[in-house]
């Protein structure tokens, strides 16, 4: 099934049950608004897509800048190469496609043409992770963080909400090297504040605490905050870090968490084999014994069964309650 068709099958709309009383938003809208705003200011901004004008939210961009929207059709390998060629002419290409097709189909192009060649292209992995719910594992991309993290020379950004998505788009346009942005489709509440600024290679401290640290990315950030609230009720003060940048990795923040708190829980809508949790584990594993604190890595370990995004997040243990349980387990069993 094409991404367009996938987009029309509204499998994941509606609000998150974890925070039914809080408004939630699709990050793609913020992505599209910011891209359009930048394009009005800077004529070097172009968008490239694989027939995903609708699902990448590029309809308004095409209306306003028809010449600067390059739709190469359903051909991801060519799409990524085209992005590299455009960048070599001083243009700033945002190459947009559903994350499974962008990162899997064109992985060698991402490696050779973008990361190794250092063409400053912005790869936009739309509707990542479990966003396509019932459409199944062919349309899921829990692997994208593992694959991209294996490549040197490319930033990986996972914005947690609307504001951070805007900031990520603007930062990537200014950055002289390649960036991958994971643009979420599953609706999430706002978690950052008016004054919070996305800083390259830095986790954002959303909540202070000295008992344990929860490091979460994307969809899981709001759930981590709810978990921290529930933990407080039982007397546990949890530090919550928003891992918007997976690469470069905020090693200092991870070390600080290991030295200053008694356990760490990571949570992401991704495979545990090479994403945020694996990155954190590799830092902690190299620390001296007293700082090698208990760690729980929450994420996916197998292909998803049939179900909505919400259902699958529950299935894979990625609810606020699961974060609470993992935290309590880490604190009590080490």
């Amino acid at each position: 099934m094409s991404t367009e068709a996938a987009n029309m099958t509204s499998s994941t709309g509606g609000s998150n049950t974890v925070s039914a009383d809080v408004p939630v938003y699709d990050n793609r809208a913020a992505f599209a608004d910011e891209l359009l705003r930048l394009a009005r200011e800077d004529e070097r901004i172009v968008a490239v897509c694989n027939d995903s004008v609708g699902s990448s939210n590029l309809v308004a961009f095409r209306q306003e800048f028809p010449d600067r929207l390059i739709n190469v059709g359903i051909a991801e390998q060519n799409m990524v190469g085209v992005g590299a060629g455009l960048a070599s002419f001083g243009l700033i290409p945002f190459v947009c496609a559903a994350s499974p097709f962008l990162t899997a189909r064109a992985l060698e192009q991402i490696k050779a043409d973008i990361a190794y060649s250092q063409h400053p292209v912005i790869l936009c992995g739309m509707s990542p992770g479990l966003a396509y719910g019932e459409l199944g594992p062919t349309h899921h991309s829990p692997e994208d963080l593992s694959w991209l993290r294996a490549l040197p020379g490319i930033d990986i950004v996972v914005p947690a909400d609307r504001r951070q998505t805007r900031q990520a788009v603007a930062a990537a346009a200014r950055h002289p090297r390649p960036t991958f942005i994971r643009v979420g489709r599953f609706k999430v509440p706002d978690v950052t504040t008016e004054t919070s600024r996305l800083r390259r290679g830095k986790f954002d401290v959303l909540r202070g605490g000295d008992d344990l640290t929860i490091i979460a990315a994307g969809t899981l950030v709001s759930r981590a905050l709810i978990a921290a609230e529930r933990l407080r009720a039982s007397g546990v003060e949890a530090r919550v870090l928003n891992a918007a940048y997976i690469a470069p990795l905020d090693i200092d923040a991870i070390r600080a968490a290991a030295f200053e708190t008694r356990a760490i829980v990571t949570a992401e809508e991704a495979n545990v084999s090479g994403g945020l949790g694996a990155a954190v584990a590799s830092v902690i594993g190299e620390l001296p014994a007293p700082a090698r604190v208990p760690l729980r890595v929450l994420g996916m370990r197998e292909f998803a069964p049939t179900g909505s995004t919400e259902f699958l997040l529950g299935h894979f243990g990625l609810t606020a309650e699961d974060v609470v349980k993992a935290a309590e387990d880490a604190l009590s069993h080490g």
Partner: peptide, 13 residues
């Protein structure tokens, strides 16, 4: 593919 992107880039600029 990269050459195609360059040819497009030349035209756009």
């Amino acid at each position: 593919p990269v050459a195609v992107g360059q040819a497009m880039g030349a035209r756009l600029t």
